[in-house]
């Protein structure tokens, strides 16, 4: 039985205790900033509204992969050979290239929401001043935020493909045969996702550097994507030659990232385009490097 005397305790204030443990270097700072960026991006540890938007945009991309796989499995159950579409069978299921075209636009919208979320509040609330007086550099801060967005976009781009590929594996009768016939799709969609995530991260962070207001940055990103996408269509009114039109199509960021660049990875570029393959690659590299340089220059000026 507990007596009153036993219950009585004393709280001692041991005063300030100096920290004597280890201090890790910039690696921990990077890891912390990347994890914080991923959490912020997905609204983890925050209110319902912060979670709602990213998942609203991201869910359809993963669902698309699932739906593609489910359709394939359904027709397989009905007796169609979903593997062989060359022989004129009535079923011509879309492949990873088509899946890319469907999900790329959604991922661009996702980037338009998440990119500003990662960098704008730090400048708006001026928390960035507290980061830069820690034992890290501006490069560490920007690099870590950049990596956080890259990881999210890479995951958003690859997950639907993985879902589709694995879904087909379980959906078709001959899983081993399917894996042997289609293993090359894996490096293709991973390679494309790496390039797409790098490009989208660079553009999204660069545009988010212009303003410290998230919604304005989001609207500017979507606006630039839309204007750049309709611009070639408007210019086509003047009947430019096919080669000029192919060049102009590179302006369309959505078309560039969801159709032209994927076709390079999925080996269908030469079937659809006459333009030298080096031109879209150089253009993509120019836009990516230019965006990174612009971001760096902006932040240098803000210090």
């Amino acid at each position: 039985m507990t007596t009153d005397q036993q219950r009585t305790g004393t709280v001692f204030d041991i005063g300030y205790q100096s920290y004597e443990g280890t201090r890790e270097g910039r690696g921990l700072a990077w890891k912390t900033l990347v994890i914080d960026g991923v959490k912020n991006g997905m609204g983890i540890g925050r209110g319902g509204w912060a979670k709602f938007l990213p998942w609203l945009v991201l869910s359809p991309t993963i669902l698309t992969g699932l739906v593609f796989a489910a359709i394939a499995a359904f027709f397989e159950q009905l007796g169609f050979d979903v593997e062989d579409t060359e022989g004129g069978l009535p079923l011509d299921l879309p492949g990873h290239l088509e899946l890319t075209a469907v999900i790329s636009f959604m991922i661009l919208i996702f980037a338009a929401f998440i990119g500003p979320e990662l960098v704008c509040p730090d400048r708006r609330n001026r928390v960035i001043h507290l980061y830069l007086v820690r034992p890290i550099t501006l490069f560490d801060y920007l690099g870590a935020r950049w990596c956080a967005l890259f990881l999210l976009l890479f995951a958003a781009s690859t997950l639907p493909h993985i879902t589709y590929w694995v879904g087909l594996l379980f959906g078709v009768g001959d899983a081993l045969g399917h894996a042997q016939d289609n293993w090359l799709d894996i490096p293709r969609f991973i390679g494309y996702s790496l390039v797409f995530a790098t490009f989208t991260t660079a553009v999204s962070i660069a545009i988010s550097s212009i303003t410290d207001r998230r919604m304005i940055a989001t609207l500017i990103i979507i606006g630039i994507m839309m204007i750049a996408s309709i611009a070639p269509g408007i210019i086509s009114i003047f009947n430019p030659s096919d080669s000029v039109m192919e060049l102009l199509n590179l302006i369309g960021l959505i078309d560039l990232s969801s159709t032209i660049v994927p076709s390079i990875f999925f080996d269908t570029y030469s079937e659809n385009y006459d333009l030298n393959i080096a031109i879209p690659i150089a253009w993509m590299v120019f836009l990516t490097v230019g965006s990174i340089a612009a971001t760096w220059r902006f932040y240098q000026g803000q210090r």
Partner: peptide, 17 residues
């Protein structure tokens, strides 16, 4: 609490502390 924990880690203090 969360903000200070985050800032401590950015300064190199291990997450466990």
């Amino acid at each position: 609490a969360n903000f200070l924990t985050h800032m401590a880690e950015v300064s190199g203090i291990p997450p466990s502390r």
